[in-house]
Design a protein around this nucleic acid. Structure first.
Lengths: 189, 189
DNA sequence: AAAAATATGGAGATCATCTCCATTTGTCAA
DNA sequence: TTGACAAATGGAGATGATCTCCATATTTTT
């Protein structure tokens, strides 16, 4: 997928430093309150270098969470391989909420990535969407889930969960929304 | 609620012009791509005047949609008074999607208002939330809807719908998500 | 070791946001 | 009416963030 050109040694080093520093800042929760230029300084590189590697905040955020999102997707595949489809889907969605809850920064970032007004979704969210779509499709094939709703609807629900992370009762509401979606998905006979 | 001080004649006029012009720009969909200062010029007022009336983009957006949201809330109350609770809720949510679909600009704006990172939700969305909460509560009292999920979950779903409006299959996905939520809400017996 | 290719940093250009206040406009009491 | 006071205006410029450009430095290739 990403058959990108080989990066020169120092360039790679800087890229790594940037991502490492960014991860720090994310976890502290200050990312979106920080001047992008200042972030460069913080990471010990020039602004030019920062911009060359990551043209936008979103690009950087995506890079930081690329691994995390990939892990989420891998987990989806693992669940799909080891559990009945319906259960895999449920477990995945529940786990997703728990994971976001544990990593506030991820929520902000995913919300930003997904909500990005630049039509084209980020790579990270595409992957995630694919994973969800697969889980739902499998459950449909199993007959455990109705076939008259688009998997995108589930994606939208996740979107809402991610985007609304600043609501007071977030965790409970998010869990409840997942419950609603899962119960709603159960094939009505 | 809004016992604001009486506004001087010219101030009121300018305020009205600003809101009218803003409505235009919203419907064209260009609001967030437009420099705020340029908007002032477009409306024929100085930047100072614009900022005095509406300190932020969000404030302006809220003013524009205040009426619209109020109408939505009024509709919720009307439905609640004339239909069985469950039906009122369903009709309201379906209508909400249709309404957003018909006013693309509203979607963007509401999404931005609701997603606003400044913790405190805008007045408009508070009202909306109250309306939804009431509809759900009534349906719960009726026994038509389960009582073990927070109304906020429905709000989150709406949030997702609003925020994800740039997805290709938006309308179908939104309708499907509403279906899931409604079916999920049905009291499981 | 020299040439070619690649990457760097940070000064400054660019651009949107917002403030400030000298001036204009509206209001109200006499 | 009119004078005086309050309220509102507009737009020039301060502010501050984003991004570009390129002379210099580093790495890779030959």
């Amino acid at each position: 997928m990403t058959a990108d050109k080989p990066l020169r040694a120092d360039a790679q080093r800087n890229r790594d430093v940037l991502i490492a520093k960014a991860r720090e800042v994310f976890d502290a929760g200050d990312f979106f309150d920080l001047r992008f230029d200042d972030f460069a300084r913080l990471a010990g590189v020039g602004t030019g270098t920062l911009y060359r590697h990551f043209p936008t905040r979103e690009a950087l955020a995506e890079a930081v969470y690329h691994g995390e999102v990939a892990a989420l997707c891998a987990r989806a595949r693992r669940l799909q391989a080891t559990l009945p489809a319906a259960e895999a889907l449920a477990t995945f969605l529940r786990g997703m909420v728990a994971h976001i809850d544990a990593h506030e920064g991820l929520a902000r970032t995913l919300a930003t990535l997904m909500a990005d007004r630049s039509g084209a979704l980020a790579v990270g969210s595409r992957e995630l969407e694919q994973a969800v779509t697969d889980l739902v499709a499998a459950a449909v094939r199993d007959g455990a889930v109705r076939d008259d709703v688009d998997a995108g609807a589930v994606m939208m629900a996740l979107h809402g969960i991610g985007a609304a992370h600043n609501r007071p009762g977030w965790r409970a509401e998010a869990d409840d929304l997942i419950t609603l979606v899962l119960d709603g998905l159960r094939r009505p006979l």
